[in-house]
């Protein structure tokens, strides 16, 4: 059995390589079920992290986990990014934090069968990415949430700010530390 290749930090200079046009906008423009999820990534001193990179993966509204190519749709003439095609939902988003640690994604509400966005956190200083989940609403029953004490459980549930906007802050360390996940081997 081959041993895995070790992880290394994403470092500070991914900004010209990994972000792409419409990375934060998996929702087709004007889609009636579009929502906005946003928040701030903070370190153990409560300071915003300006060089984190977040990725999101989620089920399509019909429950499909097949995804679709085209998140990084390219222009064969210039080699640049064209932006998404405005029709197909790829289920994938990637967004760097701003200088104030804030980020946002405009996506489609995930289905009841998997009512969360899976979040993968990268940052300078973080040796190995971290997984968490942003639940858009408290599900009636959920094996992961139900096994957590209330205070920790709350770190996985986005706060409804109305008008389709949901707030989800990520704390890498400290009092408000977000619950990070490990997947069974």
């Amino acid at each position: 059995m081959p041993r895995p290749t070790p992880s290394q930090t994403v470092g500070p200079f991914y900004g010209y390589a990994l972000p792409f046009t419409d990375g934060a906008r998996p929702a087709p423009p004007g889609h009636p079920d579009a929502i906005t999820l946003h928040g701030v990534v903070r370190d153990g001193a409560g300071q915003p992290i300006p060089d984190a990179l977040l990725e999101f993966w989620q089920a399509a509204p019909d429950g499909s986990l097949d995804g679709h190519p085209g998140s990084l749709r390219r222009d064969p003439v210039t080699g640049g990014f064209l932006g998404r095609d405005g029709v197909r939902f790829t289920g994938f988003a990637r967004v760097p934090t701003d200088a104030d640690g804030h980020w946002r994604v405009h996506t489609l509400r995930p289905p009841a069968s998997a009512p969360y966005l899976s979040v993968c956190v990268f940052a300078r200083g973080l040796m190995h990415h971290l997984y968490t989940r942003a639940y858009l609403a408290e599900p009636a029953a959920d094996a992961l949430l139900d096994a957590l004490p209330a205070r920790r459980r709350a770190t996985l549930v986005a706060r409804d700010e109305g008008a389709g906007v949901h707030r989800f802050d990520i704390h890498l360390q400290g009092e408000k530390e977000t619950v990070f996940l490990d997947f069974a081997r």
């Binding site: 986990l65 190519p69 085209g70 998140s71 069968s113 040796m127 530390e177 990070f180 997947f183 069974a184």
Partner: peptide, 29 residues
């Protein structure tokens, strides 16, 4: 130093977890 969690990671054993699938890419990417 300030960018790692101090709490243990929480295990997810759900075989239906969305994380067991992932984004796909193709010739347009």
């Amino acid at each position: 130093v300030l960018r790692h969690p101090r709490q243990s990671l929480v295990s997810v054993g759900d075989p239906e977890a969305a994380e067991l699938r992932g984004p796909v890419f193709g010739v347009t990417d």
